[in-house]
Structure formats: structure tokens, C-alpha cells
């Protein structure tokens, strides 16, 4: 069964060379005929499917469109052309701690962020201890988040996002923060989710991490899909080009 179907997706951005942020500027530029945009395709005609239970890796250099693709899948961007279909719930980990309010305490943020992800307060209440335990931040629960280190914020973000059993989990290089102990813990958690039927999409620059976790990989280059297939084939081809 296909959990995610990406069909011929293109994403175009208008890079306004002279960004007009006020009416006056806008009209001035329009009158002067200077109102031109540089079109930039972050994604071009990308097509692939992700099946249920896949641990899907996305690789590519910086600026190849990986993050854009994740945002299209999770619904943040609407593709300029093409369609995406996702079955079931998505837990997006585009950036750990997106939606945290730095002035609120960790306890308040757990509730706020949980509801951002569409959870009910009752459910969060039940799982509260589990979240706290996983993030190992019991002693700092009532401290405003602005006093936290980035590693601490990442932990709590990961703990909240993975507390449910989402149908699809999207992770964008989130495992690069935190120490190696926490990274191991996260990977373990993701494997556990996967055994229970969650489909994963992982973006990482660490090819070892991809090889260790994924069973399928897509390789993006300058917004186009260069290759998609099982991990070994794609990773070997990728390594051959980029490590010589």
C-alpha cells in the first residue's frame, strides 16, 4: 500500500530581486517596470511513492530540495504543479521545537506543542510523564524555554512529536543535534515506531545513518530526482560521485 504518493511535483519560488514590502515601493517598481521575479524551481517533476512500513531516506547536497520536498509532503507548501497524497496522520519533525514559545515553561510548551500537532490535552496528560522521562529534563520543567540549551529543546521536541504512533513520521536532520547518547535513543525510538507500522522519511547528510536505518532511498540533485531505489544501490552510486 502506498502511504505517500508524490506525482510530478514541482515547486517554484519567486525570488524577488528587489523585494517590495510596501505599497509605495510596489507601485513605484511596477510603474518603472522593474517588478520582475527570478523564477527558481526548488523541485522539478519529482515522482515517487513511499509504501507502508518503509524507512525512506532522502539524500542530496545542500540546496537539492530535500527540505522543500518534506515541507510539500507535510502540507506547509502547496506544490506549484503536481499532487501529493498522504494517507493518515503526519508527525512533522522539520525542525525540533518549531512552535515552542520561548517565554513559556517546558510544561506549558508540552501542552501547546502537543495541540499544535493535533493531540488532545487528555492524551498529553496521560503521556506527560513519558515525555518528561524520555527528554530527561525533569528538573527543568518549570523553567522558561529561553533558558534552555538547543540540545534540551531538541530533546523535548522529539519526545513530544514521537509520543503518538503517527502513520508517517518526517524527520529533517533532527538527529544531528544532541549528543551521541541521545541520538542513539532517538534512533531506537524510531525503529520502535517503525516496527509498529509507522512509515518514516528521513533526511540526513550522514550517509552511514541512512545506510544503517533506511530500506529505500531517493537521491535529489538540484531539485530533480536523480535516483530512487533500495539503499545499497543508491548509496553506492551517491558515494561514487561525491567521494572521489
Amino acid at each position: 500500500m502506498n502511504m505517500i504518493e508524490i506525482e510530478n511535483v514541482s515547486m517554484r519560488f519567486n525570488l524577488a530581486r528587489e523585494k517590495s514590502e510596501s505599497l509605495k515601493e510596489y507601485f513605484l517598481q511596477m510603474v518603472q517596470g522593474k517588478l520582475h521575479f527570478d523564477e527558481f524551481y526548488a523541485l522539478r517533476n519529482v515522482t515517487f511513492n513511499v509504501e507502508k512500513g518503509d524507512f525512506f531516506g532522502l539524500i542530496g547536497l545542500n540546496g537539492s530540495g530535500k527540505s522543500t520536498l518534506l515541507k510539500v509532503i507535510s502540507g506547509v507548501y502547496k506544490p506549484t504543479e503536481g499532487t501529493t497524497r498522504v494517507k493518515g496522520t503526519i508527525a512533522p519533525l522539520i525542525e525540533l521545537g518549531a512552535g515552542f514559545d520561548m517565554d513559556l515553561t517546558a510544561r506549558e510548551n508540552i501542552y501547546l506543542n502537543g495541540t499544535v500537532l493535533g493531540l488532545t490535552p487528555k492524551y498529553i496528560q496521560e503521556k506527560f510523564d513519558e515525555i518528561v522521562e524520555f527528554s530527561e529534563l525533569k528538573d527543568f520543567l518549570d523553567v522558561p524555554l529561553k533558558n534552555y540549551s538547543s540540545g534540551m529543546i531538541a530533546r523535548i521536541g522529539f519526545a513530544i512529536a514521537t509520543i503518538t504512533q503517527p502513520d508517517v513520521l518526517i524527520a529533517d536532520e533532527i538527529l544531528s543535534v544532541g549528543d551521541f547518547l541521545f541520538q542513539e535513543k532517538c534512533e531506537k525510538r524510531m525503529q520502535h515506531l517503525r516496527e509498529n507500522g509507522t512509515t518514516m522519511i528521513l533526511v540526513s547528510h550522514s550517509i552511514q545513518q541512512i545506510e544503517r536505518n533506511c530500506n529505500k532511498v531517493a537521491w535529489l540533485e538540484k531539485g530533480r530526482l536523480k535516483m530512487v531505489g533500495d539503499t545499497k544501490t543508491v548509496c553506492d552510486a551517491y558515494k561514487q560521485i561525491h567521494q572521489e
Binding site: 514559545d101 517565554d103 513559556l104 506549558e108 501542552y111 501547546l112 495541540t115 499544535v116 493535533g118 493531540l119 488532545t120 490535552p121
Partner: peptide, 20 residues
């Protein structure tokens, strides 16, 4: 309906921050 708790929590946040 799905996001009603979010609405509730956001209002709560604004309220806390305003008078904290």
C-alpha cells in the same frame, strides 16, 4: 473541531504572557 484545543491553548498562552 480537530484544532479546538490548539485554539484554547493559544488563548491561554496569550493570557499568561500578557500578565506574567
Amino acid at each position: 473541531f480537530r484544532y479546538r484545543y490548539l485554539l484554547y491553548n493559544l488563548v491561554g498562552r496569550d493570557f499568561k504572557l500578557k500578565y506574567r
